[in-house]
């Protein structure tokens, strides 16, 4: 007999022996390494839900990660998946995408990987409007190495390398991506599963540099050091302190310790992608001599 008020489909899903998203995962790699209440799994689930929603041809999707807790995502999803070096998933993905423009290339990595050691690649890929779907799990900290400060750590927050509180202003990654030229910029938290899924579904079909920041709890390190409570307490914090403001000026969405988290879709525009601009410009300048132009035209005629 079902518990009162719970739909039969939900009961069926949770009582099934196979996890509902198992077909999308490398189940032979389970159990995963993430702590309980970590938000990375939620972000992965939302991505899978977006694939299901769009009925994406997964043979044509590649996922590239760097190093760190989020860097392990590439190893758990059943796609062509590349676990690269620290900070370098964006240039790796750039090569992958340009070598085969039919691929949808997702970069799924952490805040330290993408904005510290990989920060230079991040700004230049956004400037170029490279056709990459960049998902950044931001837990304000280096989790894998034991909770050190990151370029995203809010002022005054305690980490294992800022034991007296962080005295460095952090990046606002959404502002950074938007300022550099990204086509799509959004921020959600691990609580906003449906909105996150919708954002992922949008970026999977949107050309250009698309950036989604996912604010997630790291209860093992960040929350413990800052006495923020359990994973559930953090979800409650997200619930009570999120302000949804679509179209907000990215410069006004800084994250302050203990303050509100402004979420929403901040940017959605249509600058030409790197490859579109190349094809257009070189086609104009070189005419018939532009090989890719002939190939693209041929493909159109067929």
């Amino acid at each position: 007999m079902s518990p009162k008020g719970v739909p039969e489909a939900v009961i069926a899903a949770v009582s099934s022996e196979e996890h509902p998203i198992a077909p999308f995962l490398r189940m032979d790699r389970m159990p995963h390494i993430w702590c309980s209440t970590c938000g990375i799994g939620t972000a992965v689930k939302a991505l899978v839900a977006a694939f299901e929603k769009l009925e994406t041809d997964l043979d044509k999707v590649s996922i590239v990660s760097g190093i760190g807790c989020t860097g392990r995502v590439a190893g758990y999803v059943r796609l062509d998946s590349f676990h690269t070096t620290h900070g370098r998933p964006i240039p790796f993905a750039t090569g992958l995408k340009l070598a085969n423009s039919e691929l949808t290339v997702i970069v799924f990595s952490g805040d330290g990987d993408l904005s510290a050691i990989g920060g230079n690649h991040f700004i230049h890929a956004a400037r170029r409007n490279m056709d990459l779907k960049v998902i950044c799990v931001n837990n304000f900290i280096y989790g894998m190495t034991g909770g050190q400060a990151a370029p995203t750590t809010p002022l005054t927050a305690v980490t294992s390398t800022t034991p007296y509180g962080n005295a460095e202003p952090p990046f606002n990654l959404c502002h950074l991506a938007a300022a550099c030229g990204a086509n799509y910029v959004a921020r959600w938290t691990a609580l906003h599963v449906r909105r996150l899924t919708k954002a992922f579904a949008e970026i999977l079909v949107k050309p250009g540099f698309c950036f989604v920041e996912v604010i997630t709890p790291c209860s093992t390190l960040y929350a413990r050091k800052n006495r923020l409570g359990t994973g559930l307490d953090i979800m409650k914090y997200y619930h009570d302190n999120t302000v949804i403001e679509h179209g907000a000026e990215p410069a006004d969405t800084d994250i302050v310790f203990g303050g509100p988290i402004i979420c929403g879709k901040f940017v959605d525009r249509d600058r030409p992608t790197w490859l579109e601009y190349q094809d257009q410009h070189l086609g104009e300048v070189l005419g018939d001599k532009y090989y890719r132009g002939k190939v693209l035209q041929g493909a159109g005629e067929r």
Binding site: T84, P91, F92, T94, G95, L98
Partner: peptide, 28 residues
């Protein structure tokens, strides 16, 4: 451009080597 290749000037040499590794996995 005349032979169907993609040339990209990256932001540094780290990006350059990593991009060519990625492109090799894309078949180039």
């Amino acid at each position: 451009p005349e032979v169907g290749g993609i040339f990209i000037q990256m932001e540094d040499e780290i990006a350059s080597i990593t991009a060519i590794i990625g492109a090799a996995w894309g078949g180039a």
